[in-house]
Simulated assay, not measured.
Amino acid sequence: MPTDPILVFDGHNDTLLRLYGDPTGQAFEGFFTGGAGGHIDLPSARAGHLGGGLFAIFPPSPREASLSDAMAAAPYALPLPEPLDWAGAARATIEMAAILFRLEARSGGAFRVCRSAAEIEAARAAGAFAAVLHIEGAEAIAADLAMLDVLHAAGLRSLGPVWSRPNIFGHGVPMRFPSSPAIGDGLTEAGKALVRRCNALRILVDLSHLNEAGFDDVARLSDAPLVATHCNAHAVTPHSRNLTDRQLDAIRASGGLVGLNFATGFLRPDGCMNEETGFDAMLRHLDHLLSRLGEDGVALGSDFDGALIPKAIGSAAGLPALLAAMAEAGYGRALVEKIAWGNWLSVLRRTFGA
């Protein structure tokens, strides 16, 4: 493989949640200077050739226990967190959106919030980081969907109806290992209306965290490519958060995509969160995803700043090591470039427009 770097577009991070959780403002400033902890800041992104990604707004559950600690030993079956109230979720969502726009304003053009594939490509050409506004858990949106219209006008282009907790739209899959994702009911009528409205607004509907019945409802309703921004293969690691072969086949039939999740509990055959997880586990999932989805349907969805990731990667700066492992495993440069950047841009162009 040539030595010139391959740029990465990443399907999921929780960096806004990390910045939101630091009232001192040090993490915000550290995003530009580095050294303030976390997986993504501009210096580490430049070092790892991370050129863009979906920045998740995640309204956190109160008193949420550490998932990494709870998933350190298997088997486990964690209870679903309690539903969030609308007012608290709306406040957190607006405050995290403000952090994203303040990053853009503070960056002097080095960090851009993008609303189309063309804007992502323009940011790449300018050497700027291309950020896309995403929501993980739509508790800030009421059944009238008025907030969805407001958020779309502000730049929202990707939305996961649920996190791993219930809301008025549907049911998230609980964290269980070993387990099927077939747990609970499908979308509510409000959830079906949300999917239709997202299609009309050309907002990507993220299947990550939905249970199997909810996945099937989206697959029946949606006229857009089916996308799971940060999921892995259930056939390799039988975790409730991973996708079965039947689900992967439905995604392929729609022209959709799955972003490989770096969270070690979804990668390892034992289902445990353990940073001593090698590239071999990631490659097993990539190989399986490629076998079911084809070369156009696989990308990266790291879960940076939201999960315990392999120590061999460490942060965004470690992405070249993963790409090198892919090359050493026999992935040609053209395939690595598709997984790293091209496949995301293709599905985003087909979902929310050129």
Rank of each mutant, 00 (worst) to 15 (best):
64 E>K: 12
32 F>V: 11
294 G>F: 02
32 F>W: 10
249 D>R: 15
192 K>E: 10
178 P>V: 00
174 P>K: 09
78 L>F: 08
233 A>S: 06
28 F>A: 08
311 K>H: 14
91 R>N: 03
210 L>M: 14
185 D>C: 12
31 F>L: 06
137 G>I: 03
240 S>R: 06
303 D>E: 11
169 F>I: 01
101 F>C: 04
339 I>Y: 06
56 A>H: 01
109 G>P: 03
295 E>D: 07
273 M>I: 13
73 A>T: 15
88 G>Q: 03
144 D>G: 06
343 N>Q: 00
197 R>P: 05
268 R>T: 04
119 E>Y: 03
80 L>I: 11
329 A>F: 05
349 R>S: 12
318 G>H: 04
17 L>A: 13
40 I>Y: 00
230 H>R: 06
67 L>Y: 13
255 G>T: 09
187 L>R: 04
191 G>P: 12
344 W>E: 01
122 A>R: 09
85 D>H: 11
168 I>S: 14
206 D>R: 00
240 S>F: 05
148 L>P: 09
307 A>W: 04
110 A>F: 00
288 H>L: 01
101 F>R: 12
265 G>L: 11
31 F>H: 07
246 R>H: 10
347 V>Q: 10
303 D>A: 02
290 L>V: 14
329 A>V: 06
173 V>F: 01
146 A>P: 12
215 F>T: 07
337 E>M: 12
11 G>K: 06
171 H>E: 08
177 F>D: 05
227 V>P: 00
278 G>L: 09
183 I>F: 09
333 R>F: 09
341 W>I: 01
183 I>V: 14
24 T>M: 02
146 A>V: 15
257 L>Q: 05
110 A>D: 02
294 G>T: 04
28 F>Y: 07
236 V>T: 07
309 I>Y: 04
276 E>G: 15
160 G>M: 04
115 R>C: 07
294 G>C: 03
1 M>H: 11
189 E>Y: 04
140 A>S: 14
148 L>M: 04
305 D>G: 05
172 G>D: 10
45 A>G: 01
298 V>I: 05
207 L>P: 01
